Amino acid sequence: MSTPTVPVDLEAVRQVLESTVMVDEVRISRPTGIPVLDVVTGLVGPAPTTTVWQGSGAVLSAHGLAAVEHLVGGRWLEDTASWYGLVTPLSAPLPQRGDLVTVITAKSPTAGTVGRTWQALDPGEASTVAVARITRLDEVVII
């Protein structure tokens, strides 16, 4: 990681991220019970959930996360082993491992993320110096 030659205005970076990247509506929900077996189909249904937070954010692929680094003019995210990341404002709560993230609406009509669901792989990252909340995600694929 390179050291900036001039001080970084973290508030300006936060504002850029919130106004240009976190433009979709996302929901973070937490499983609160045990999935129920549908005796008619023999399939296990989804676990009941409680909405933890709903508001502005973005689900970005690893390529999207790298592009955001260029947008804000610096590297603010370490390499990721997961393919997706959730970016939410600092006002959003820290997601917990196992929380579910669903994109409710996307600003771009070609986003391809609306209605898809991901699971938080780890608790949301926390830092004493931050410009956004970052949470590693893995897509939940329903077969």
Rank of each mutant, 00 (worst) to 15 (best):
residue 44 V to K: 02
residue 113 T to K: 15
residue 85 G to S: 14
residue 62 A to D: 14
residue 83 W to L: 09
residue 7 P to R: 05
residue 106 A to V: 09
residue 119 Q to V: 14
residue 77 L to T: 14
residue 8 V to I: 13
residue 83 W to C: 04
residue 43 L to A: 12
residue 132 A to E: 11
residue 44 V to H: 06
residue 131 V to S: 08
residue 132 A to G: 04
residue 54 Q to G: 03
residue 73 G to D: 09
residue 131 V to K: 00
residue 141 V to S: 03
residue 103 V to H: 11
residue 54 Q to I: 14
residue 25 E to D: 11
residue 140 V to E: 10
residue 63 H to L: 09
residue 121 L to C: 13
residue 35 P to R: 01
residue 56 S to C: 06
residue 99 D to R: 13
residue 45 G to V: 03
residue 107 K to Y: 09
residue 138 D to C: 00
residue 15 Q to F: 01
residue 118 W to K: 11
residue 97 R to P: 02
residue 106 A to D: 13
residue 80 T to S: 15
residue 82 S to Q: 12
residue 36 V to H: 01
residue 80 T to L: 13
residue 98 G to T: 08
residue 65 L to R: 13
residue 30 R to V: 06
residue 128 T to Q: 04
residue 45 G to H: 03
residue 23 V to E: 03
residue 7 P to E: 12
residue 127 S to K: 05
residue 80 T to E: 05
residue 70 H to V: 10
residue 62 A to V: 13
residue 101 V to S: 09
residue 30 R to S: 05
residue 24 D to M: 01
residue 64 G to M: 10
residue 117 T to C: 12
residue 7 P to A: 08
residue 84 Y to V: 05
residue 19 S to Y: 02
residue 36 V to K: 07
residue 14 R to S: 11
residue 6 V to Q: 07
residue 40 V to H: 11
residue 27 R to M: 13
residue 95 P to A: 13
residue 47 A to N: 06
residue 94 L to S: 12
residue 37 L to Y: 06
residue 40 V to E: 14
residue 85 G to Y: 00
residue 6 V to M: 00
residue 58 A to T: 04
residue 88 T to P: 01
